[in-house]
Design a protein around this nucleic acid. Structure first.
Lengths: 311, 311
DNA sequence: GCGGACCACAACCACCGGTTGTGGCACTAG
DNA sequence: CTAGTGCCACAACCGGTGGTTGTGGTCCGC
């Protein structure tokens, strides 16, 4: 199926005559006839009933027409998604099911008219480069990485402190606890295969380990969250950290426990980053939305690394 | 933009390497390279960053990918809409904004998983032909037309009696009435440019005219409902009939009145028609839904033509 | 009955899009 | 360091797609 043929089909359906459609598309009537015939051959049905006064849609053509229009609409949006200038707002989120992603879903619910594209960048360094180049408009990150202050032209605002929870299977020693103090995790094996070395996530856990004497293993390949959950559920000696607002695809038949951590509660500090000179109109809307949504957070009894910009 | 190129882009993005994508698509690596290059040239952006270990998505590529997937999904659905066997349920409704259309919208809300295609057929004769040939699965019609009983293999059930209302502008003699008896419409000009001669709609109004001595003008070309409403609003001598459950795009700035008609209330009898041997699984669901939704109608004080099958 | 409007078919031709062959580059093992 | 491997891009070639012009057939209205 060829998009040009679909475009021609829609034009012919609207015009009711191949000749008129041909004039609109700046091709000959014969070309329209051939394109439509090719589309009909591809689909295996007759789309028009030809008469001496034009071409009317057949029943199959009527059924196909709205799908054809939708196809052209989607194609237009796909092109617009990479068109420089007036493209959709492009936001980098740190994990597709994490809290930042949840914030963007809420933003989309509040402003469905704003076109969004969500991408993922490796670390804050790549994010800053992309923001400065204009390739992305905003980024959810923990700022700043240790010893690397943000450049002058990048602005940031803290939008969400996400408390970390312990995730264990039913056989784990702490599985029955309603909550667990951070100090009691010393000696337990905590497995974080998703944390890529060199990212600010890794820096965050490095600091957590150093300050509270935890044992975090980031070894082994990351087979995705499904495999992680499977392993944690089946291995009594293993637990993992998980953002308290992370959406999980809860594996059926597994008995996984989310246990709040206290004294202090480690929170992951999500900030929004953007370029001060970015003229995208939707960027202001996003910032206003997040400012309203993040009001009234309480940081008492929580922990963040020392290098994190204070609220 | 070429759908084959988009398919190739998605395959390469999933595989991470052009060679693997080429194997999946049963073409050479060079062909994949050329297709992706052509797509990048069309879009004006680079979709992959080529490395010696494969090809990773660029930021633009990441933004484009979900749109590309959506495009292929829509293309698949478009093809399925005309695929013989297991295509979406295809229903003929009498007018895109009429009551039958409202019933189908309600059905879609109740069963969003059922794929639907809505078409429009000229009259009940065409509808019966289409149903018998299997080109459409069901049709909303007034059965039967005078003197033409339904064939044996077509089944029907009355699903909605839609009361007719009078639609007038503010200057009309009846504009202030809360309701109007049918007999009082004698002598008033009622304009129905949308009624096509030869359809069962026309037969309905012919009977209405004959029985109550109305003056219905079906002359003049039909410029669409917008033009109809404009004219009615501005012409004190004109009124028109309108289904009580018809959704209107109410013209801004016009003061149009919908006036119920009584003693008796003419109702338009919508029935669902289908082929007894039609095996489409969604057809049973639709019939069950309509049976449940149409329960408990009251036909006292209403009028339908004598040729209409009684409830 | 004839002219006009419309679509389909035929012949022709340019160019798109596939193939094979080859080269350059990056990473790795010895 | 070097040879080897795996990756993608470029070049040359070639068949078929998809455009054009020219023509024929059919239906409708005057």
């Amino acid at each position: 199926m060829d998009l040009d043929a679909v475009r021609t089909f829609v034009a012919a359906a609207d015009a009711g005559r191949f000749q008129e459609a041909a004039a609109e598309l700046a091709i000959t009537q014969q070309a329209v006839s051939k394109r439509v015939a090719a589309l009909e051959r591809d689909l295996g049905v007759r789309l028009f009933t030809r008469t001496a006064r034009g071409a009317r849609l057949s029943i199959d053509g009527q059924a196909f027409l709205p799908h054809a229009r939708e196809l052209l609409r989607v194609a237009e949006r796909a092109e617009a998604s990479v068109r420089p200038g007036r493209r959709p707002l492009r936001v980098d989120v740190i994990a597709s099911r994490g809290a930042a992603s949840g914030l963007m879903r809420a933003f989309h619910r509040a402003h469905p008219e704003i076109e969004l594209d969500v991408v993922w960048l490796f670390d804050i360094e790549k994010a800053v480069t992309a923001i400065r180049s204009g390739a992305v408009d905003a980024s959810f990150r923990a700022v700043a990485a240790p010893g690397r202050p943000l450049p002058e032209d990048i602005a940031s605002v803290r939008v969400l402190d996400e408390p970390l929870q312990l995730l264990t299977g039913p056989g784990h020693a702490l599985a029955g606890a309603r909550s667990v103090p951070l100090a009691r995790l010393a000696g337990h094996r905590i497995w974080m295969p998703g944390v890529v070395p060199g990212t600010e996530w890794a820096a965050y856990y490095d600091d957590l380990v150093a300050e509270f004497g935890l044992t975090i293993e980031a070894t082994g390949p990351n087979f995705g969250s499904d495999a992680l959950l499977d392993t944690v559920a089946d291995t009594p000696a293993l637990a993992t950290f998980m953002g308290g607002r992370t959406r999980l695809v809860w594996p059926a038949g597994h008995d996984l426990r989310r246990i709040p951590v206290t004294d202090p509660t480690p929170v992951y500090p999500h900030s929004l980053l953007w370029h001060r000179d970015n003229p995208h109109p939707a960027l202001d809307v996003l910032r206003a939305h997040l400012a309203a949504a993040s009001a009234g957070h309480d940081s008492a009894g929580t922990w963040t690394p020392g290098w994190v910009t204070p609220r």
